[in-house]
Every structure is written in C-alpha cells, then in structure tokens.
Design a protein around this nucleic acid. Structure first.
Lengths: 151, 151
DNA sequence: CTTACTGCAAATCTTTTGCAACGTC
DNA sequence: GACGTTGCAAAAGATTTGCAGTAAG
C-alpha cells in the first residue's frame, strides 16, 4: 500500500477544489494498493463493490476521468477494447507491457530501449516525437513450458 | 493500383470457397488501390459508396472481418477508438505508424529497430514474443514549423 | 437450385450525458 | 446553505447479430 501516492493524490484534489467523497476515496485507495495495475473501469468497480457497495459504475468512470485530468492516473490501452488506468508515473515510472496471450500475465518494462529508436526516427521523419505506445504479446515462460509438455 | 494484390486476394477467396460479390469486389479494389491505408470501416464505406451505392456499412464490416480471417487484410489500431485495416504485409511489409497530433499525417516505418528490443526482452522476461504493437505520436515537420511561426 | 451473402433493424458493449436527489465543505 | 457529486436511466458511438430476402456458383 503506497501511502505517499494516496496522500499526494488527496492533496492534489483538495488544492484544485475537488471534494473527497467516499466513492473517490475508495477508487484512490484501490489504485494506491499494490495489486492495482492497468485496471478497467469495470474491474475497478468490481474490486470496490466488496468494500463499498454504494459506488456506481458511472461514478467510477467519472472518478477515473477526473483523476486522469488531475494527473493522478494515466489512461493506458491494451488494444482489447477497454480503457485501462494506472497510477501516474507510479513506482516504476513510465513503462510498457508485455502480455501473455495464454494466461494474461503482464510484465512491465522500462522505455530506455525506445528512446534511441525515437531519436533515429526523428532524424528520418522530421517529426518531433512526443510520446509512444508499445505493447508486446507472446507466451510467458510458464505457459510455454506447459504447452511443450502437452506435446 | 496493385493488381497483384487484387488477384492474389481473389484466388485466396475462391480457394476457400467464398463467393465474389460486387460488394466484396469493391472493398478489395479499394484496399488494393494506392491511397488506401489504415482505413476504418466507415471510411471504407464512404469511399465505396460513390462507385457502388448498394453496399451497406454492415457488409463492409463483414468483408473486413472475412478478409482479415483469410489473411488478406490486417486489423490495426491507432488507439483512437476505431478499428482500422490495411492490406496484409502490403508493399512495405510489417511496419508501424508515426501519427502527427496536429494534422493526422501518418508516416510508416519498418520494424527492424524493434527486433533487437524483442530479443533483449525475451532473455529478460522468459517470454516468447509473438508480436508487438508500436505507435508513436508527435508533430510532423510542417506542423512544427507552422507552430513556431506563430510565436 | 442450393447455399452463402446482403441489408435492415435491432442488439451489444463500453463509455458518456441529463437530471433530480444528495452530501461535502 | 451552496454547489459539487452521485446514481439512475437513457444516449451515444462502434461493432455484431438475427432473420428474411437475394444472388453467386
């Protein structure tokens, strides 16, 4: 549980004049907990329902939008049809995802490898590159070994 | 106009026992024409309507799905909420997109730069990487120069 | 002629919005 | 007490599906 994130987010909200409701608190707590990575609105809602039944899915959507605007969360996409959210920057900073096609296991990795590509592309294209989105898919070690056993 | 693509696609369809309807022909011709890159279903429909008014949007969706299953088209995403399609492989082979945030101008580039990253990541993570999705956004040269003039 | 294909309308699924009731500050 | 916030229901927008009619082979 990252207490700092929670306090930082709280302060950010207050400074901007937004109110702290139980619903917003629940969403914040969820995203500041360790297990909460790249969650969809529906997943967040499901996770919250247990502790706070009085939180509508629409409110979760609005919280996610607000927190993203304020800079507390980042909206990320896995190209699976769902908008997903993570703590902005987060413990591991900017990163990308490597998703297992079998079990959905996600590995995160930093972007240091992308920077050099961006510089090359800027020279080639004349673009000023502002951001990038990289997702890799494959089979994780466990699923690969399990598949091989089946042969 | 890439006549080879069109003929290849036609043969592929016939071999698999699918019928060639005027609607499918129109979609195929569109994607085999030079200007047709990363089109949405709606864009394809609009482009076809002029020549073939009797093509419903639903049919375009079904053509795109069929052609993707058969391997004629690839489904790609710009994370803008629309599914987009291109000729599979295409003249330039596997590639990625660099999209201008100002004017929407798209530059394509090959993936040779990604392969080395994939190999490093496979060693790090134990994954067997099967595919990747990379999109870069930024400002193209023209938009950057126009912005600077405004200062 | 048979079987696949089309087109319309309606359903689906995620996300957004209108509006009255509610709760924070 | 004022005004931001919530929740419901309904809208919106892209895509999919059911089904009766149509046409390719």
């Amino acid at each position: 549980m990252k207490a700092d994130c929670f306090d930082d987010a709280l302060r950010e909200l207050r400074e901007r004049g937004f109110k702290l409701t139980p619903q917003r608190r629940a969403v914040l707590e969820l995203f500041c907990s360790d297990g909460a990575r790249h969650l969809t609105a529906q997943q967040a809602h499901d996770a919250i329902r247990g502790r706070e039944p009085n939180v509508g899915l629409v409110t979760v959507y609005r919280c996610l939008e607000l927190f993203t605007n304020v800079g507390i969360l980042d909206k990320i996409k896995f190209n699976d049809g769902f908008d997903r959210y993570e703590l902005h920057g987060g413990a591991s900073g900017h990163h990308h995802h490597l998703v297992c096609t079998e079990c959905g296991h996600v590995v995160e990795f930093g972007d240091c490898l992308i920077r050099s590509i961006e510089r090359k592309l800027e020279k080639m294209s004349g673009f000023c590159i502002e951001g990038h989105w990289l997702e890799l898919i494959g089979q994780c070690r466990e699923c690969r070994e399990r598949t091989e056993e089946d042969d």
